[in-house]
């Protein structure tokens, strides 16, 4: 399954990455190398094999419904790239 610069552009958009036109071909070719290696997966016989999302067959421990977290706004806003009036700032969002 080879991918070209058009697919790279679509995927890059989904991942919110900028791909310069100049690098696009080189990037496509690198990605194709990786995908060619990954394509070995198609050799495997996976009939009736359940996908394994986790290394261990265990279930989720649940947390008691208690308020335990302090207000850390000042700490959080201090390391924020842009903040004002207690909020993080982004360019205007148009819905």
């Amino acid at each position: 399954m080879a991918i070209d610069s058009k697919v790279v552009a679509q995927v890059a958009h989904l991942a919110r990455l900028k791909v310069d036109q100049a690098d696009s071909d080189a990037l496509s070719s690198r990605l194709n190398d990786i995908l060619a290696m990954v394509d070995q997966l198609q050799q495997a016989d996976v009939t009736d094999v359940a996908p394994m999302a986790h290394p261990l067959d265990v279930t989720q421990p649940l947390r008691d419904d208690k308020v335990s977290e302090p207000d850390i706004r000042d700490k959080a806003l201090e390391i924020a790239p842009a903040a004002e009036d207690g909020c993080f700032l982004v360019p205007r969002v148009i819905e």
Binding site: V11, V38, A44, P51, M52
Partner: peptide, 28 residues
């Protein structure tokens, strides 16, 4: 590169061929 590969592997139409299959191989 890895973000792009991962995004591609999870995207519509490729999930089964890549991600799901990799998880099956993982069990093997």
């Amino acid at each position: 590169r890895r973000i792009l590969v991962g995004t591609y592997a999870l995207s519509a139409g490729y999930y089964d061929a890549y991600y799901r299959r990799a998880q099956q191989v993982r069990r093997l």
